[in-house]
Design a protein around this nucleic acid. Structure first.
Lengths: 122, 122
DNA sequence: CAGCATCCTCATCGATACTG
DNA sequence: CAGTATCGATGAGGATGCTG
């Protein structure tokens, strides 16, 4: 099976790789919460975000930990205590997200108006 | 049903709104292709990308058009002729993606190594 | 407390066939 | 040429219950 060479291939493109990560539902939000608080326990993150399920928090934290965006420190205590912190790698990404956030805030009204106008013309 | 107030709520957060758009599989790629070529017909985009299905190209173009990232010009001819161009709004977004791309290229190796190391420790 | 396991739903996406 | 319509697979994500 042959296919055209695609420089934007999901598996090989760095941008796609990062976009797939921060483009999911919770990763970016968790990073932001961790940046604001420096260190948080599992349930503290849970409460900070509010409407994330326990499963998705667990899954997303694992993914962020695997990539090195978040550090996980386990205390050998009963009951268990786990602290999460954002890593320098995670921190270094956020300014670029902020730039995107700034652009988004500046243009979201335009986008929404475009979308509404488009739907009216159907 | 009550829930905590979430400033990063998908529906209301501008960043999420934009990330949801460019975080999908094809939108960003189409914008990049259109930026490089200025004007392209439907099938030209199709060939440029290669492994996108006709359906997804159609759906994604509609979505980009609705938000005002892409302009669609129809010629009343037989056979049909439709030209797509990136709008100023779309163009203004790309530098921020480029910044993200730059960061991604600089850190993708670290991320991949982290990911591999993490998986080995399982 | 900090999770994992299980089941389920729904949106996304691809393949295929058809059309003005 | 530039799509639309339909079906089916896949996987993200949520709800619930259980555990060291």
């Amino acid at each position: 099976m042959e296919k055209s060479i695609n420089f934007y291939n999901v598996a090989e493109c760095p941008v796609r790789n990062v976009l797939d990560k921060i483009g999911d539902k919770w990763s970016l939000l968790i990073l932001l919460v961790l940046k604001e608080n420096e260190v948080l326990r599992f349930n503290e993150i849970h409460k900070s975000i509010g409407d994330i399920s326990q499963k998705m928090l667990s899954v997303t934290l694992k993914s962020l930990e695997a990539d090195g965006f978040v550090h996980r420190k386990v205390y050998a205590e009963i009951p268990p205590k786990v602290e999460y912190t954002i890593t320098p790698l995670g921190t270094s990404l956020l300014p670029h997200i902020d730039a995107l956030a700034k652009w988004s805030k500046e243009h979201i009204n335009t986008i929404m108006q475009n979308r509404a106008a488009y739907n009216n013309e159907l």
